[in-house]
């Protein structure tokens, strides 16, 4: 029996004075591909930061491969949600990733041919070999996202924490990204926590889903978790789950919840001019 990759035991997480997750317990087995879902502000990012050791639990425990999370754990590959704007620099993709290798060490940055090879290999895996020589300032949001995904795969991580890796990717590259991650999960036995806005993108790829909401977390098979009673509890409002044409729609009062969430995000990125148009 191997240790769970990530285990929360009666864990409470607080962020800036308010409780994000309250008395939550679940265990992600080693090698699982977990889709992390839930409304905005449900604690997806906070959970990942806690696993990284950046946000110690207010109560309960977190174990990562049986140990307390610690900052700088080389076994964890991380793709942060792009909260800060990546600076408008003409630095090449290869130098961008190169700066992250051993980036915590003092002294001058230097990357040898071994590092270059690793970077090229990781870029190849996400179908982005050409980004090595492309300046950052000329990359689209999607290309930057693929660069970050490649970077997260470098260095043989045992656990991948991917925070909204599909944002800014077009449909084709979303598929590529999910494929790459699934392959890494299956072939290298990497455990994956993959947060996303829409469940449908992950259908067929993930082993189980972790749904967060209302301070709670439910981990289980899609058919057990994505149900009206469970989601109504997590969203704190009456939810209908409609299955049609091989897809799952999570609806509140006749509106597709995930789409509405997505529009919220979109609005935040582009000012509040149209912030209320979905309420009609």
């Amino acid at each position: 029996m191997t240790l769970p990759a990530v285990e929360l035991d009666h864990t409470t997480l607080r962020m800036g004075g308010h409780t994000v997750l309250r008395d939550v317990s679940f265990a992600v087995e080693s090698g699982e591909f977990i889709g992390v879902l839930g409304p905005n502000g449900a604690g997806k990012t906070t959970l990942m930061r806690a696993v990284l050791g950046l946000c110690p639990p207010a109560a309960g425990t977190i174990r990562v491969f049986g140990e307390k999370p610690r900052r700088g754990d080389a076994a964890i590959g991380y793709l942060p949600q792009t909260r800060t704007v990546i600076p408008d620099l003409r630095i090449r993709g290869i130098d961008f990733i190169g700066a992250s290798l051993d980036g915590h060490r003092w002294g001058l940055p230097a990357h040898n041919s071994g590092a270059r090879h690793m970077i090229a290999e990781a870029l190849e895996a996400v179908g982005a070999r050409e980004l090595a020589q492309r300046p950052l300032s000329e990359m689209s949001g999607g290309e930057r996202q693929r660069l970050l995904l490649a970077q997260a795969l470098i260095g043989r991580p045992k656990l991948l924490l991917l925070d909204e890796p599909l944002i800014m990717l077009d449909a084709r590259h979303q598929e590529v990204a999910i494929d790459v991650v699934r392959k890494a999960c299956r072939e290298r036995g990497i455990t994956v926590l993959f947060s996303a806005h829409e469940l449908n993108q992950l259908l067929g790829a993930v082993d189980r889903v972790l749904y967060l909401g209302n301070g709670q977390a439910v981990l289980g098979a899609i058919d057990d978790v994505v149900t009206a009673p469970v989601l109504s509890r997590l969203y704190g409002t009456e939810i209908e789950v409609v299955r049609a044409a091989g897809r799952v729609f999570v609806m509140a009062r006749g509106l597709d919840v995930e789409r509405v969430e997505h529009m919220h995000d979109h609005d935040h990125g582009h000012g509040h001019g149209h912030a209320h148009h979905h309420e009609h």
Binding site: I86, S100, W106, P109, Q151
Partner: peptide, 21 residues
């Protein structure tokens, strides 16, 4: 020179740099 490597890393990717210690 002493801080250049972490400085470049955290300038480009602050969240990841924080996670890496």
């Amino acid at each position: 020179g002493a801080i250049m490597r972490p400085l470049v890393f955290m300038s480009l990717q602050p969240e990841l740099a924080e996670a890496r210690g």
